[in-house]
Write a protein that binds this DNA or RNA. Sequence first.
DNA 1: TAGATTGTTAATCGATTAACAATC
DNA 2: TAGATTGTTAATCGATTAACAATC
Lengths: 209, 209
Amino acid sequence: MKKEKVSSAVIRRLPRYYRHLSALQRAGVVRISSNALGRNMGLTASQIRQDLSCFGEFGQQGYGYNVEKLRGELSDILGMNCGHTAVVLGAGNLGRALIENFHFELSGFRLSAAFDVDSAIVGTSISAVPVLHVDTLEEYLSQQPASVGVLTVPGKSAAEIAERLVRSGVRGIWNFTNMELDLRESGVVVENVHFADSLLALSYMISEE
Amino acid sequence: MKKEKVSSAVIRRLPRYYRHLSALQRAGVVRISSNALGRNMGLTASQIRQDLSCFGEFGQQGYGYNVEKLRGELSDILGMNCGHTAVVLGAGNLGRALIENFHFELSGFRLSAAFDVDSAIVGTSISAVPVLHVDTLEEYLSQQPASVGVLTVPGKSAAEIAERLVRSGVRGIWNFTNMELDLRESGVVVENVHFADSLLALSYMISEE
DNA sequence: TAGATTGTTAATCGATTAACAATC
DNA sequence: TAGATTGTTAATCGATTAACAATC
């Protein structure tokens, strides 16, 4: 998958395209024009064609886009067919909620293990995902490399665990802690899910005079 | 709090400013220049001054910004001192994780109640937050209005519950379901937390050739 | 074919960065 | 005071939108 230089704004829209196309496909829609998709998503047709043209030519003049085909192209573009794997760090409430309720496989990830320090849960399984002791993290990852570490540990452990994940060769960290991880020089990509930032943005928007 | 027309890009940075200033304050830093804050956050000094100038003049030439004062200004700008309240819809894994682990009060929200359909938990409390039956939602909100509904119900109930929240007068919906809510005409603000979109963006970034 | 719709180039718009006078 | 740093105006850069020839 070669990339020239795709802007962050475009990258952020790709999962939305994928999601909307999936819904259209489920609804039995076979083809869609950039115009109709734009109305559907609240974007201009122009923007959609411009965005997609970063990756290739997926449409057909006079016809539009085949929904199933475009969805498939997007899944490739997004790396959903790379066989990515993930491990969860911290099987507390949030980690557990993600393991039990979030369908990693629908995003192309296989969730292979969770790690925690709590001896009450180490050795058990959550939704068929084994919970291992975090002391065995390096050993495990040397045998079973992971593409992504899902960081749901307490904030005070975040930096240390992130560091260990980086040394163990993960390519990305999905960071649910409220800590800012500075891994710029490691080359590891950090994707932050800062709940507080999201709620505060909402707070701002509902507080406008 | 009067606003001219603040761009979405600026709004998204405000919580980050607040978070970084909070960390600086905890670290005992009294004053900071736009230059130093920029280095800290990975932004240009120019952008920081431009952003803040949307809301007033908070600095002092030759000195910079007083950390505590600027943090206080940002908390006002973000609406953290408006006495906002929230209710959680759906006390499953994710709802429970938010109730137990997310500190609403640190974002200026009081979490007053949770609602669910499961008779096994209705009537109990989670971290001192009462769990009520969702049938009593309208009755409750007419007595105890909420600024925001936190939507952690299953996707298939999302649209219905969102609609009921809107009719009950919430100003915003913090949407954790994977459903797209179209409330454009209601005037209610939707803030989406789409886990899958976030993971797919990460997937894209770690999959670049 | 005629109508529709793409991919792409050009025009516009908005956001970021640079520059600098004002001033603490 | 001299040095530092702001707030703001101007310049640049990038992203979005519009236009249109190509073509299914």
